[in-house]
Design a protein around this nucleic acid. Structure first.
Lengths: 207, 207
DNA sequence: ACCTGAACACCGTTCAAGT
DNA sequence: ACCTGAACACCGTTCAAGT
């Protein structure tokens, strides 16, 4: 995880890992079946860092805190997104976390069907936001640089809306893409709250 | 693109590409600076396949159609998500598409700030949904198999909510994760529609 | 202009061998 | 139980050489 955080996923090779541990490459295989097992383990370690919501408490607060926690964790380990895309082997921390999220929604009054909807929606937003953030440079200054570089090379008259948004908004002093997160999260939680009243009336609502 | 679609991104090597083109590996370098340039080009080719929304038309219909088109395209080329995470070099088709989306929102009455919010939200949902779908097997039958395999190995009593959702919903005959897409998309577009009335009153609303 | 062979510095992993 | 060296079949890419 240190290797991936510091130098990217490509720098995490069996040989580099061994060197970090002051061992020869083949020593690693005595503790792990292969690289796939390491990658599966990494994903689970990341999920273990996300704050679990607490079933039984007010669902909106719990989910909001969980999503902010998840975003912060994914921001620290952006390489995990690329791993999730290809992994089908959830570890114990991953399943425990999923269980806590599902439980929080169910006990918040969500029907089984609405829970499935909500879960797909919330996590899609979370992962997708992480994808977009990962595609940006880490420093806010570097984003400005990148945007200016792009604008300089661009046939400006061909993309008027793109240019307007970039110049009049993204390149303005106070702008930070990370701030966009709250808008979307609030909108989603508001929408779920509204659907909670109208959908799945069979399930009693505990709040 | 054919190589990546058929056998995954890992199968797209310079050597395999050359073989597909009936050339020796080094011949490829006469047409392309390196592998990075190929990957940048692939991302742009995928964006080129997504239906651009038409600025000036009813924004909700345009965005809905655009999102369904994007989802279908991302479903055909799931490897593109892993590429987007690491690429900062948007191609012409990518910028053209972004411009069309931004233009459709702006002319639909969105202020610049609300457009930025909406864009981040919608695309996060799109990419994140694609990440989750990519992590699932292609065939619906295979999802059931995977879920059943997982359930068999799981300490069931430890994850009651996870088990409930899986057994009572996901493993039910008619369930297909792909169907979750419309729920989230509608919720998001509804929410944006509501914010359109209350936020950014400085910009006149053309509809 | 377009292609090639040989080579370099890397990968993950197998296998037989050491302590 | 834990580690190692040598080897194999791969990578992306440079460089000098061909037509």
């Amino acid at each position: 995880m240190e290797l991936a955080d510091e130098q990217g996923l490509a720098a995490l090779t069996m040989r580099a890992l061994a060197q970090r541990l002051d061992r020869k490459p083949m020593a690693v295989y005595h503790h792990v079946r292969g690289k796939e097992e390491i990658l599966d383990g990494l994903v689970d370690m990341v999920f273990a860092q996300i704050q679990d919501p607490r079933p039984g408490r007010e669902w909106r607060e719990e989910m909001s805190a969980r999503c902010h926690s998840a975003r912060s964790v994914l921001g620290k380990h952006p390489w995990v997104i690329a791993l999730m895309e290809s992994r089908t082997n959830p570890g114990p921390a991953t399943i425990k976390h999923h269980d806590a999220v599902i439980g929080t929604l169910r006990q918040g009054g969500f029907s089984v069907a609405l829970t499935a909807h909500a879960y797909a929606l919330i996590d899609s937003y979370l992962y997708g936001f992480a994808v977009q953030e990962a595609g940006l440079p880490g420093e806010a200054d570097a984003v400005d640089e990148l945007a200016e570089e792009l604008m300089a090379a661009l046939p400006v008259e061909q993309y008027p809306h793109f240019v307007e948004l970039t110049v009049e908004h993204v390149l303005q002093p106070g702008y930070d893409f990370a701030d966009e997160f709250d808008f979307g999260l609030s909108l989603i939680l508001d929408g779920l709250d509204a659907r909670l009243g109208t959908l799945g009336p069979g399930t009693p609502r505990k709040r």
